[in-house]
Design a binder for these strands. Structure first.
Lengths: 338, 338
DNA sequence: TTCGCCCGTGTAACCGGTTACTCTGCGGAT
DNA sequence: ATCCGCAGAGTAACCGGTTACACGGGCGAA
């Protein structure tokens, strides 16, 4: 592979001149520039980005560290990030911690010298621990993680408000006994959604101890919840699953037992995955523009890279929107409370 | 940020010793190593991967260049790649050409010096043109692209065989007049699927000019095809869409017109996106393990990086599997040909 | 004519690591 | 006691670019 030295020799100039000509800097006469360009073409020279970024102290790359790559959630985040990054001429370096907290440190460390900034979606570990891993000198924006004590900018979804709104909507549609299917216990999103549900039930529904079934965000666990619900003869006229995936499983479980949705029971989810619209009846849910989570974070990172100083104060909280569809059709349930 | 020189000074040794100690090479006494490690801890030293890869001539990174990041197809490919790459301790550098052929060259060029190898899914351009872009010195595996004249290894899906098999299956289930909804004209996958359909119809079905409606892989175009089909009064008892997305739109269009699936018309797709199982009735389709496309390609790349020489001869062709579901339920259609 | 300035170009240091080669000193063999 | 071998450590070149600074020549001003 040809190096800049080769080009310079071929063109009969010094490396400095070759470099200037190639990068379109001033102080190069037209003939000289032409000679260099000819050499570039002849030798098929392509600048070595690695070497370049070493001196420039700039890699034009942003590291993206996610807990997983499974499912639409992460791919949408990546797409959102890429949308903005591409516009700014930056590349994405993916670091997958594969769910392991331990690998997080390694993933972050291996980014040093490869990226100009970091977009991190931490697993559910203590902020102090995270602070140990992160390099304070490296611009970092957190995804879906309230920095708390750390003074880092972050982008998150207002899960609490979203869950509250959905619960309220179910109550407004006539449901009295709403059951929640929770997400993984250690998951921040899941906890916030559960809090929103409980608070809405208490304050708006006047229910003292709202019913909650365990789940883990998987379709499978939604199915299990349906069985639990029916076998346990838990009185319920609506179920609010902490995510769409579980709602899908839940509906399958209800259908299995001959329960009509929304006829016997209303169902709602959270996330608005594409599948939601295609179910029959279609699934009511809280719409989260996941890609915006990524693009917003990337835009914040770009601002930091441009010299602005952003702290936790400049966090962005995205509010999900209520999408009412078939599974919470109030008309259907009106006459037939379970 | 602390450099190796800082660590060496702090530990009272030379950079060479510090480097050896940190990398666990021999020729370092235990006390010396301990001193270096203490300095590392004290200064919070993290090696600069960029500098390291410059001398090692190894980046532990593989460049992934895709035409787009939209939809499940690409995210599954990335996940498949990551699965294998992570195992081998490699990172993924994403290069998105955003559908533009022109950007392809830039994307590939900007990878030089950043990656050890390339996984490229080229848009539908001439192989000779692609050869111009690619660096012959950089190990490269193509995704979903028959190298043709180039002697590059590639991984692809046998779209022709898949389409042929599905068409055959529809015929076997009693369909006589199968209509195909084609994908984008310039798309290689789409063309192969269409060829498979046409050949099966001709050879197995004995149909001279099988009916084909235009499409572009989008749900929207599937919906349009349904309208075209019904308004045009094209005789049909089965529709084979070139991908699931269009099949979904098609089914919506048929439902709109009061046509029952599979009662009035059987429907089949291609890809087996997750949504397929959840439709009601569930969608028959050709299952493509998209993630394997990525993981297989990555495994081939690793072999090249280990020193093996792989050419077009070592290409892998993945054969999709027929998944018969509700939309092609033969029993339902038996008595009611449209 | 001479001085000073600026423009085009070259030299070499530098980015932050790795590593070939060199050097020193100590233990064992002769 | 002398020599050899080798382990532990250091010096400096190198990876492939960028760029501060030096340098020489041409031109306008005095």
């Amino acid at each position: 592979m040809a190096t800049l030295r080769d080009v310079a020799r071929e063109a009969g100039v010094s490396v400095a001149t070759a470099s200037r000509a190639i990068n379109g800097l001033g102080n190069v006469t037209a003939p000289t520039r032409a000679a260099v360009m000819a050499a570039v073409k002849k030798l098929n020279f392509v600048p070595h980005s690695g070497a370049r970024s070493l001196t420039r102290r700039k890699t034009d790359t942003v590291g993206v560290i996610l807990p997983d790559l499974f499912g639409e959630f992460f791919s949408e985040i990546i797409r959102g990030i890429d949308l903005v990054a591409h516009e700014a001429g930056m590349h994405l370096l993916l670091g997958n911690m594969h769910g392991s907290t331990h690998e997080t440190a390694a993933a972050i460390a291996s980014m040093r010298g490869r990226v100009d900034g970091l977009l991190v979606m931490p697993p559910d570990l203590k902020p102090e621990l995270l602070a140990d891993y992160l390099d304070p000198a490296l611009p970092t924006v957190l995804l879906n993680y309230d920095a708390g004590s750390l003074d880092l900018p972050f982008v998150a979804v207002d899960n609490y408000r979203g869950a509250y709104a959905m619960t309220e909507a179910l109550l407004a549609r006539g449901a009295r006994q709403v059951v929640h299917i929770a997400g993984p216990k250690h998951n921040r999103d899941a906890r916030d959604r559960q809090r929103g549900f409980v608070d809405a039930m208490t304050k708006v529904g006047g229910v003292r101890n709202p019913a909650i079934l365990p789940g883990d965000f998987s379709e499978e666990s939604g199915l299990k919840a349906a069985r639990l619900l029916l076998e346990g003869q838990l009185p319920a006229d609506a179920v609010f699953a902490a995510n769409d995936q579980m709602a899908v499983g839940l509906i399958a479980g209800l259908a299995e037992a001959g329960k009509a949705v929304p006829g016997n029971m209303m169902v709602a989810g959270f996330d608005d995955i594409p599948l939601a619209r295609h179910l029959n009846p279609s699934l009511s849910t809280m719409q989260v523009h996941i890609d915006r989570l990524g693009s917003t974070a990337m835009m914040m990172l770009l601002r930091i890279l441009r010299g602005e100083t952003l702290g936790a104060a400049s966090a962005t909280i995205l509010t999900p929107a209520l999408i009412a569809r078939g599974t919470t059709d109030a008309m259907a349930i009106a006459g037939t409370p379970a």
